[in-house]
């Protein structure tokens, strides 16, 4: 079963545990500045929104890469950077409509979410289940269940 990261901003409290987990897994230190997932705080609206790569099927970053350094992971479906091939041209960062591919100036390569190879640490670390890693074909299940629970069959009788 293919899984995908599913984000429910309504549950996010802005604690940044996801950013720390991501950077710890990928950089070996708690470093939100190097996280592949970012939580945005919309202060006046009182909203927090975690945001990261959605692993597009037709990934523009992958298509734009001139040296084929972005490839599909056959197991997770993630679009992964092959560091040995990446030349740091940053064309993918321009191609991505969502801004989720970014350049890392300390390595000279780009970075993006690779779903931690199938065990995304952001989802494990999230204390409120705002980030989950679920069946890619049923990301609407939870919302369907919520609405289903509001169906009052008795009242109709």
């Amino acid at each position: 079963m293919q899984r995908s990261l599913h984000i429910d901003p309504g549950k996010c409290t802005g604690c940044l545990q996801c950013e720390m987990a991501c950077s710890y897994e990928n950089e070996g230190a708690f470093n939100p500045a190097k996280s592949r997932i970012k939580v945005f705080s919309f202060h006046d609206e009182g909203r927090y929104v975690p945001y990261t790569c959605t692993q597009c099927d037709e990934a523009w970053c992958m298509q734009a890469c001139p040296v084929d350094a972005i490839v599909v992971n056959p197991i997770t479906g993630s679009k992964d950077i092959i560091n040995d091939r990446c030349v740091g041209c940053k064309v993918c960062t321009i191609a991505c409509p969502f801004g989720t591919v970014n350049y890392n100036s300390s390595t000279g390569k780009v970075v993006k979410c690779d779903l931690c190879g199938g065990d995304p640490q952001c989802a494990s670390a999230c204390p409120t289940s705002a980030i989950t890693y679920i069946d890619a074909d049923a990301t609407g299940l939870d919302r369907m269940r919520q609405w289903a629970s509001k169906t009052d069959t008795q009242a109709a009788a």
Partner: peptide, 18 residues
């Protein structure tokens, strides 16, 4: 409006209000 967390906090007692 919602509750908000400080850095790294899994309790999130902060109040975000209007």
């Amino acid at each position: 409006t919602t509750n908000g967390a400080c850095f790294g906090c899994t309790i999130a007692c902060g109040r975000i209000s209007t």
